[in-house]
Every structure is written in structure tokens, then in C-alpha cells.
Design a protein around this nucleic acid. Structure first.
Lengths: 255, 255
DNA sequence: ATAGGCTAGTTGTATAGACAAGTAGGGGTG
DNA sequence: CACCCCTACTTGTCTATACAACTAGCCTAT
């Protein structure tokens, strides 16, 4: 039985219950790749919901990348594995935990100072404005992976310096303590060679290949809230991405 | 006047006409960041469409990242620039043209041969199966940027070897000639140092920093159709990404 | 002055129905 | 056998309506 009863008393929307149930069927293997997902009509009839609600459930499945719809044919389970951790905005801590490593950090410096020109530009503030600057060595299972330097406008979280515990996640602190939820991160990655100081901190040879990241994070409204420059060992760190085509909303390539 | 009349005779869906019109207003600056987009009710009343259609237009705007909705408050223009070319699946030719450079390629080899183990695994075929292997130097304005080696299952496009013009885009040929539309690309980027042969072809010093890419592209159904290994000069090439948070379909973080 | 409630406006969810457009298959006709 | 049409089923678009949940501002009673 692919479909099961809904909880109409729940605060969870019906379409979301349906989506989660189908998602479970896919993950458990009851629905295999290439197989058709129940049609809008069938969901509608079997669960006693309107076709638009069934449709919303299927559409959300497609947006997750789990399925795809073909007009006139049906909706089918995609063969692409979800498990390959294609990237989202993840904090270092989250990312490491997901890979099963124990994330740790060593704080190199933590201070309030005027923004550099580059930082001011990225954060849309004046160079006279102060920023909180946090420089850390990032480690997984006590192996140094990279050096990260975060900049946050001091006005956003005035008492962060006193209250932040460097062992915890900066992202989570921003979210829980200040209600700052990061929605989008723009990232530029370059490849380069480790300089002397960096090599010493990362315990690698000078001139080893490294990644150089420049990241700016924004809240939903588009206001920038964090600017990060970091350097990572290329022998221990890869960039994994999933790129999607166009993402037109109008069904299939309309123009 | 933010809203204008619709063409009800057109084959273009109403919600898409509305979305495109609003998108134009944002691009032209008539709608600035932070400003509210017309509400569902207003669109509905002014254009004589149902609220659901107006809603679909706004939702599609949000999916493009141009706007964001807040329950009880409204829908607002996001401050994040579209222009920064956050990545999608772009062929090399498309990417270069977008940056205003003249893309060129020099074909190093073009042949049919049995798949290597790595290629077979990526393409979900047997090592006994044959693949079309195309190795090219990628250039922008006659400057060598990288070396790309594409592998395509020979069964997909049997006569490609005879008919392909290396000066054109491989992606566009696949699409127009064989109806193969790439939907998703998984990419792994590593940083490394140029080896002797690579350095010679790219006209850089041996040991210069380079990007190493491993890309697999899939059609909508999830079937892999192309596997590419490439190497790019790090001094002329950067990776630009936009990462988005979670993308839950249920409005805001429901769990 | 403050706390509370009321109201108007907004998005989120859900229903029921309609027509259009595309696919696949069966069956009849040539 | 080959071709065409018709039918059943699918997703895509659109309408009209309803209620829920949330926001912001105004107004009143305390």
C-alpha cells in the first residue's frame, strides 16, 4: 500500500503529509527510480483530497529533485541519489557532523575592529563601521583542515563578543540568539598555494595546493550579515556541487 | 503603473506573463529591493485573474530568488542581485559568451573506445561498453584556459563522431540533434598542481595551481549521459556559487 | 500610559470544477 | 499490414470560493 491515511487534525498541511509519506517510500525503496509515483487523480481519490492538493504534494517532491513530471505521462521517481551531499548553506560544524567527523575549532583571534575596505564593500557598510572579526582554525578529528576568518557587522549582535562560546556553531548562535537566519550564501572559490604562515598553521608544506574561499551570506531580505575569507587544504577538502538547469517555472522550456 | 494588461489569446500562461512583467519591473528599477510587490489580491483585482493565478506568479518569482514572501505581511523584492552569475548548468561556450569572451576549442582527440573503470562507473555502464571520448583545449580569446575530456555512451548518439563540428557546442548538438536535455550536473572540484604535459598545453609553469573538475550530467529521468574530467588554470578561472538554505517546500521551517 | 481587543490586509492551505494539451494504446479502415 | 482516429489517462493552466494564521495599526478600557 503506497498511500496511507492522513491526519486531518494535525497542524501539518495535508500536501506536506503526502509529500513526506511519498518521500519515505522512495527512501525505503518501496518506490524505485523510474517507477511512476501515484498520479494526481489517484492520490486525490484514494486519500480524499482535492486534485490541487495532490498536485501540490507532487510538485514539492519535484522541487526536492526526488521526482520529475512529464505532461501526459505521469510523475516518476528520479534516479539521482539524494545521498550525495550536494551543497546547501551548511556551517562548518553541520558539514563535518554530516560526514561523521568531530568538528573542532581553535580560536586564533576574536575582536571588534573597523572593517577593511573589502569587508565593508561585501557587507554594504562603511569602512568606519565596526565589525566583529573571528579567526579560527577548523579541525576534523584533530586534523587541521583550514583557516577561517568571519566578519559580522557589530551592530547586528552587540554583545556577541562577551557571550559567544567558540566551541559552538556561529550559525546556530546567530539563529537562536539574534534570530538571524541565513538564506543565501554567495561563494567564490579560487585555487592557490599555501603561504608560509598558513602552511605552518595547517601543518603542510609551503606551496601546497589550497582552496581560497570568499563567502558572503545574506538573510531573506537580501541584507548581508556575514563575510568570510578562508583557506583550506586541497588534499583533504573537495567542493561538491549540484548544478541544475535553468529552473524555469513554466513547465518545460517555454522559450 | 506597475501592472499592465494581459494577452488572453496568447499561448503563454497568464501566470507566466505576470511573472515576466514583474521581473521586468525589478530589472528596470521600477521595483526596488525591499519594496512590496503587488499583493495577490491586488493582482487578482487589477488584472482580472483569480487569486490562485496571481499567487502562482508570485510564487514563481520567489523561486527565481527575485522576491520573498512573508505570511501576513506581503511579498517583497529581494536585495540580492541576479546579475552575479550564480551557476547553473552551462556549457563552456555559453559560459564564456555570457562573460563576453569569444569561446574557442582545439580538439586534441576524438574517438570511440571502451570505457575506463572510472568512466563506466560514472555513466552506469559496463567497462566493455564503448564511449565517445572528446579531448579539447578550451580557450577564451585565444588564451588557453583548460583541458576538458568528455565521455558519452556511444549508444546514445551513434553517428556523433561523423557529424559533430568541434567548433560548435557539444551541449547544443546533444539537445538539437538527439533530444538529450541535461537537467542536472554533479560536480566535484579539487585543487592541485599542473603536471608537465598539462602545463605545456596550458602554457603555464609546471606546478602552477589548477582546478581539477569531475562532472557527471544527467537527463531529467536521472540517467547519466556525460562524464567529464577537466583541468583549469587557477589564475584565470574561479568557481562562483550561490548556495541556498534547505529549500523546504512547506512555507518556513516547519520542523 | 499601557494592555488588550478589534479590524483590515496579507499569505498559506484546501476544495471543486473546468478545459487544454500531450501520451499511449486499441480498434477500425484502407 | 499500415495508417488514422478515437478513447482513456495524464499533467498544465485557470476560476471561484472558503477558512486559517499572521501582521500592523487603531481604538478602547483599564
Amino acid at each position: 500500500m503506497i498511500l496511507e491515511a492522513l491526519d486531518r487534525q494535525s497542524v501539518v498541511p495535508l500536501y506536506y503529509q503526502i509529500q513526506q509519506h511519498l518521500l519515505g517510500q522512495v527512501r525505503s525503496g518501496a518506490l524505485k527510480s523510474g517507477q511512476p509515483v501515484p498520479s494526481e487523480q489517484e492520490i486525490s481519490a484514494r486519500l480524499g483530497v482535492s486534485r490541487m492538493t495532490a498536485r501540490q504534494a507532487l510538485k514539492s517532491l519535484c522541487e526536492l529533485g526526488v521526482a520529475y513530471s512529464q505532461r501526459g505521462k505521469g510523475t516518476f521517481v528520479s534516479a539521482i541519489k539524494l545521498e550525495k551531499d550536494f551543497r546547501r548553506v551548511l556551517s562548518f560544524s553541520e558539514e563535518m557532523q554530516k560526514r561523521g567527523a568531530r568538528p573542532r575549532s581553535k580560536v586564533l583571534s576574536f575582536e571588534i575592529s573597523p572593517a577593511s575596505v573589502e569587508t565593508a564593500e561585501a557587507l554594504h557598510i562603511s569602512p568606519a563601521d565596526k565589525v566583529i572579526r573571528l579567526r579560527r582554525i577548523r579541525m576534523a578529528n584533530s586534523l587541521a583542515l583550514g583557516i577561517e576568518c568571519s566578519h559580522i557587522p557589530a551592530g547586528l549582535c552587540p554583545d556577541l563578543v562577551e557571550n559567544f562560546d567558540p566551541r559552538t556553531s556561529l550559525y546556530r548562535t546567530l539563529a537562536s540568539r539574534y534570530g538571524i537566519e541565513i538564506a543565501i550564501t554567495d561563494e567564490v572559490a579560487e585555487a592557490g598555494l599555501a603561504k608560509a604562515e598558513e602552511a605552518r598553521l595547517l601543518r603542510i608544506a609551503k606551496g601546497s595546493p589550497v582552496f581560497l574561499f570568499t563567502r558572503t551570506s545574506y538573510v531573506h531580505s537580501g541584507k548581508p550579515v556575514e563575510f568570510v575569507k578562508s583557506i583550506y587544504r586541497a588534499d583533504r577538502y573537495k567542493i561538491v556541487n549540484r548544478l541544475t538547469r535553468s529552473r524555469k517555472t513554466a513547465s518545460e522550456g517555454r522559450n
